[in-house]
């Protein structure tokens, strides 16, 4: 989590340079905070715009609806992450099927859902927060995605990795958690066997960070531990009852 990806340094330098003249005027008037560059400026993420997207052969879930980060307490021990997972942040937090631009209010602060596609196997939440101008340290992220399965798939497992800890739900049932101060690793935490329904399946995660890098990756594995790639991301609304 202390690792700043190489992109960050030139970006930060650029932002400082751009902010230079304003800083000169700061003695006279408060400097206006530059607008955040936005998700499409991220090297790893882009705003999701298509109606659906098929998974790549490696099976990683690439389209997510991510809520802007909310404050956490900076602890990532097993018990701290359990406490975070059991805390109520907003109504229906384990059932909500968000649309991009919708908001939730927590402790008088408003947070917006964003639909993003990742260009990589992982979803870089540091990029997400940074390019939205949000806090990256001591925060928690909620993520939701929906995958449509062409048939029922028994014996599947959700395989996740995250920085730092995380807890995961599939179709409303908690299936796996990974705890502690850790870095994202492919197939780090594996759920017990579960059955993917034919049609939409909702995957939900809570990522808890202390500071530094924060990201996650997730995919489904079949009974032989091979990635399940025959799934298609669809809008969460598709999973509405």
């Amino acid at each position: 989590m202390t690792t700043l990806r190489s992109f960050a340094v030139p970006a930060l330098v650029g932002l400082i340079l751009l902010g230079g003249p304003r800083a000169t005027r700061a003695a006279d008037t408060p400097a206006a905070k530059p607008p955040p560059p936005g998700i499409d400026a991220s090297p790893s993420l882009k705003v999701a715009r298509s109606a659906s997207v098929a998974l790549k052969p490696d099976g990683f879930l690439s389209r997510w609806w991510v809520l802007e980060p909310m404050p956490g307490d900076g602890r990532v021990t097993d018990s701290a992450i359990r406490a975070a997972a059991e805390k109520t942040y907003f109504p229906d937090q384990l059932a909500i099927l968000p649309r991009a631009g919708e908001t939730v209010t927590v402790s008088d602060a408003r947070y917006t859902w964003h639909a993003v596609d990742s260009r990589r196997h992982n979803v870089n939440l540091y990029h997400f927060a940074y390019f939205l101008g949000k806090e990256t340290s001591n925060v928690v992220f909620w993520g939701v995605t929906v995958v449509d399965s062409p048939e029922e798939i028994a014996g599947a497992r959700l395989a996740v990795g995250s920085n730092a800890g995380s807890v995961w739900w599939v179709n409303g049932r908690e299936v796996v958690g990974i705890y502690g101060d850790r870095q994202t690793q492919i197939d780090d935490g594996i759920s017990k066997k579960l059955t993917l329904r034919k049609g939409p399946n909702v995957v939900r995660c809570l990522i808890v960070n202390n500071r530094g890098m924060v990201d996650f990756c997730a995919r489904f594995l079949d009974a032989d531990d091979n990635p399940i790639a025959r799934l298609t991301h669809v809008a969460p609304a598709a999973a509405s009852p």
Binding site: V76, T77, D78, R82, A85, G165, V167, R173, E174, V175, V176, G177, I178, Y179, G180, D181, R182, D188, G189, I190, S191, K192
Partner: peptide, 11 residues
């Protein structure tokens, strides 16, 4: 209800 919990080192 949580399953398959994986731990990591807490330094």
């Amino acid at each position: 209800g949580a399953t398959g919990a994986a731990g990591a080192a807490g330094p």
